[in-house]
Computed example of a mutant assay.
Amino acid sequence: MNLSATIDNFLEMMSAERGASKNTLEAYRRDLLWANEELAGAGTSLIDTGREQLTKILASMQKDGFAATSQARRLSTLRQFFQFLYAEGLRNDDPSGDLLSPRKHPNLPKIISEKQVDNLRDLAEKNAQRADFTAAEHKKAMRLHTIVELLYATGLRISELVTMPVRIVRGAPDFLLIRGKGSKERMVPLSGKAKEAIRKWLELRDKTTDSDSSYLFPAHSEQGYIARQVVARELKILAIDAGINAHNISPHVIRHAFASHLLQHGADLRVVQQLLGHSDISTTQIYTHVLEEKLQSLVNEHHPLAERSHAE
């Protein structure tokens, strides 16, 4: 059995049937090639291996200091691969079936305050209105202002933002139809500030050579849209100018702020899950730590036992 061809068939299935993105497919390929290389050292191959050899290479990851998340991701890849082999009749067993996943301790997201977000947005807006900027500087400032407003108003993933088609913001819509991971679609509302920033950006964008681009944020690159690294770099520079630690700012941190601030103001967790495009509510639950004080206060104020205690 040809391993390379088998991996290609597996990746084709993951793309066609499960909507795996290009980056996810590349990660699967790396994981499988890593496993095959490790198993070769033990005198076997990925296709022929058994449970004992799989256990050993997974244990070696822990010994080598890999994070629990990396271990879990590779185990997940192997499980899906062996399930594919079994379903296709290429193996009559699944050696990964009863392997235990490493314990993962959820990393609490970095949180920035509403005041810090306001400072960031205010400075981005101020820069977009500066009269002393060159045409190139003005365009860059207008683009960043629009990006900041969009990120905070919608909680978009950076990949969703940079690849956003310009057509979906034409006509000043109140909602955006976003295609996220696994090609799943969701509706996200736009704030008034975000709509106004988009309107002004489109006015400027459409007067330039970028007007023919299909992307909201075009770039003269192979992809045709602004690189996520460029957005991250410009955000950090803006943060420094706004008096915020640059290490605490990234597009993903603003996504965290969107979710956390919604919850702090009483949004339902499942609504936030839908807005973020999380397929599993457990992913959204990492944000609930920001509600601990609010929930404790709510119980103390409104629970019948608490009321009785105050009366006594």
Rank of each mutant, 00 (worst) to 15 (best):
S213L: 07
I198Y: 13
A72G: 02
Q229S: 14
T49M: 04
S282M: 04
S282G: 12
K200W: 06
T69N: 15
S279D: 09
A40K: 09
L108I: 06
R205E: 00
T209V: 08
A135S: 10
I240F: 13
E222A: 14
V166G: 02
M14V: 02
R30G: 05
S191E: 05
L46S: 10
L190H: 13
K56T: 08
L11Y: 00
S159Y: 01
N36G: 03
M13K: 15
E185W: 14
A172Q: 11
T69R: 15
L150M: 03
N92C: 01
H278Y: 05
D64T: 05
K110W: 00
P165S: 10
Q80T: 08
A232K: 03
A131D: 10
S213C: 02
H220W: 13
I281L: 15
V299E: 03
H138T: 14
Q274I: 09
A16M: 13
Q273G: 08
R130I: 09
Q129D: 15
T208Y: 01
V231I: 11
E234M: 08
L144F: 10
I112T: 07
D93A: 06
E293P: 05
V299R: 05
E312H: 15
K195S: 12
G277V: 07
D132P: 11
S297Q: 11
I281D: 14
A5F: 05
I281F: 15
L3A: 09
V162E: 09
G192A: 11
D93I: 11
A141V: 06
G192K: 10
L150W: 04
Q129F: 14
G266A: 03
E17Q: 14
L108S: 09
P102M: 10
Q62D: 13
D280L: 02
S60D: 02
L54V: 04
M142T: 05
V162Y: 01
A128Q: 03
G89N: 04
I147V: 15
T208K: 01
A42T: 07
Q296S: 13
H220T: 15
T154P: 10
A87M: 07
Q62E: 15
V253Q: 06
H261G: 00
A67Q: 13
F81S: 00
